[in-house]
Deep mutational scan, measured.
Amino acid sequence: DEEIEKWIETLLKRNISLRVNGKDLEIGSEEFKEWVEKFIKEV
């Protein structure tokens, strides 16, 4: 979905790490990609 890709790009540009389930996810890491894929499937 384009919306999500733009959102991810924005996050990448800002180099933010997300806190997911109490863990810091490094943007661009494998864990982050897995989380994004799960997130996309749920939406």
Rank of each mutant, 00 (worst) to 15 (best):
S17Y: 04
K6T: 07
G22N: 05
K33T: 05
N21E: 05
E31R: 07
T10Y: 14
L18D: 00
T10Q: 11
E34S: 13
L11V: 05
D24E: 12
V43W: 15
K38H: 07
K6V: 04
R19N: 04
E42P: 04
S17I: 11
K33P: 01
L18F: 09
L18Q: 00
G28I: 04
L25Y: 04
V43N: 06
F39R: 05
K13E: 05
L18S: 01
E37A: 15
E37V: 14
E2P: 09
E9S: 08
F32S: 00
E34G: 09
E9N: 06
K33L: 12
S29W: 11
E34I: 14
E2C: 14
S17P: 10
V20D: 01
V43I: 13
E34N: 12
R19T: 05
S17M: 08
R14F: 14
G28A: 07
E30F: 11
I4Q: 02
E42M: 15
K13R: 13
K41W: 06
F39K: 05
G28E: 04
E37R: 15
I40H: 03
E31A: 11
I40K: 07
S29V: 06
T10M: 14
E9I: 14
R19D: 01
I8T: 01
N15P: 11
W35L: 06
N21C: 15
L25E: 01
R14V: 04
F32T: 01
L18Y: 01
E5M: 15
I27H: 04
I4H: 04
E37Y: 15
G22E: 05
L11E: 01
L11W: 09
I27R: 03
L18V: 07
I40Q: 02
F32A: 01
G22W: 11
S29M: 09
E30D: 10
L25W: 03
E9D: 06
F39G: 00
D1P: 10
I8V: 05
I8G: 01
F39A: 03
K6E: 07
S17T: 11
S17K: 12
E37D: 08
L11P: 00
E34Q: 13
E26H: 08
I8R: 03
F32N: 00
T10R: 14
N21M: 08
T10S: 11
W7V: 02
E31N: 06
I16R: 06
V36F: 10
I40E: 01
E3T: 11
I16L: 02
E31S: 06
K13G: 08
N15K: 14
I27N: 03
K6M: 07
E3D: 12
